[in-house]
Write a protein that binds this DNA or RNA. Structure first.
Lengths: 203, 203
DNA sequence: TCCTTTTTGTTATACTGTGTAACAGTATGT
DNA sequence: ACATACTGTTACACAGTATAACAAAAAGGA
């Protein structure tokens, strides 16, 4: 394995090889079923020697993770900044902004959802989104006990992912504006309402 | 392939072989990662010749589908009968009954959710639950246009699956009664409310 | 019970993909 | 220009898939 842990100096050849492998995987995921992708196929498309793959990654999953982590980090910071502006006026446009963002990077999200074949990836994504909402969504913090908050944030995260998945499968048919309204009323408002009614039952 | 299409007479040897293979797969899924299960491993555990697998199934996925279809059919009829009694008094206990049912057959559902690694299986499950709610949930039919109904039923199906998944991962910690309340308020009531508010915006 | 049919077991084989190794060639930074 | 680090070529061992031929065993009807 090349020295990726070295502080600043990264050999340009290493950068190039890794980029070629990532790009090759991305282009293959967009065309084929993920399960049928072979390492040899990736290296051929990347125009790189077969063994070079193993000089940089231990497994196909590791390469996939690296690809997704890049894109996921973007989505997370995007959602996070949106979730912090949790006054009602911002929520009006929050949903629209999310779906406009996804529209821009549709390819990346198709990969992210196709690669749900790897369960761990989906779990990781859900957990990330869940903690973001758990920490930064003010109404959830005020209402409800710990368990209810956990369920609610998990519910928001999985619902958002499923809604995105549905939207992509329907070729992004309803506009981002309409999807934003659906997101606000069906996911955010509904969940906040449910949490408050659930915590009211306990008292 | 043995004659499985013959009307009534199914060779007892065929029945036995298929049962042994299904049971072997189930016991392996409960112990190992699905991706690491090999056909040879299944046949060894089933105490059956390797080639016998291919005399009954074309692929590992096909056997998995058969196993899941059995269990899924049960869940579907269970949910379906519950969804038909959609008066509010029945909804009170509907959620509880679902989670009590899952508690009974926890092993099966762990398989069903572990095997989500195969994306097609998850899609199939979601689609089934979705159409059940779309057809039999009265409030959804009355309110909203076609697209909204599709989104809503998809939302209910995926949310229910995610809630079940969360519950199983937390070792079924909150009681079925509590989960039933969560189900009713966070999934059913919330979605119905969202659909009505969304269709009100359009008019 | 005998006999035909069907299923199963045994063994062998072609094929594909993974992962490792040795050695030669090439690019990088100083 | 030079030592260092990366890449390419070739070869190989290994595991799992999928198929085929033939022998053995079980099922069901006469």
């Amino acid at each position: 394995m090349p020295r990726k842990s070295s502080p600043v100096n990264i050999d340009p050849r290493v950068k190039r090889t890794r980029r070629l492998l990532r790009d090759a995987l991305v282009s293959l995921i967009l065309k084929k079923d993920f399960a049928s992708i072979t390492i040899r196929e990736i290296t051929e498309r990347a125009e790189v020697a077969y063994i070079t793959f193993y000089r940089h990654y231990e497994s196909l999953d590791q390469l996939l993770m690296e690809v997704l982590d890049e894109g996921l980090a973007e989505l997370m910071t995007h959602i996070e900044t949106l979730a912090k502006q949790s006054d009602t006026s911002a929520l009006e446009t929050e949903g629209r902004l999310i779906f406009e963002y996804i529209e821009q990077k549709a390819d990346l999200f198709r990969i992210l959802l196709k690669s749900q074949s790897v369960t761990r990836v989906r779990r990781k994504v859900v957990r990330n989104i869940s903690t973001v909402f758990q920490k930064s969504c003010v109404p959830l913090e005020r209402l409800g006990n710990q368990t209810t908050i956990e369920i609610a944030s998990n519910h928001i995260a999985t619902s958002l992912l499923s809604l995105i998945e549905w939207w992509l499968e329907n070729n992004m048919k309803p506009t981002p504006t309409e999807m934003g309204k659906v997101y606000k009323s069906m996911i955010i408002d509904s969940t906040v309402g449910a949490v408050s009614s659930l915590s009211a039952m306990k008292k």
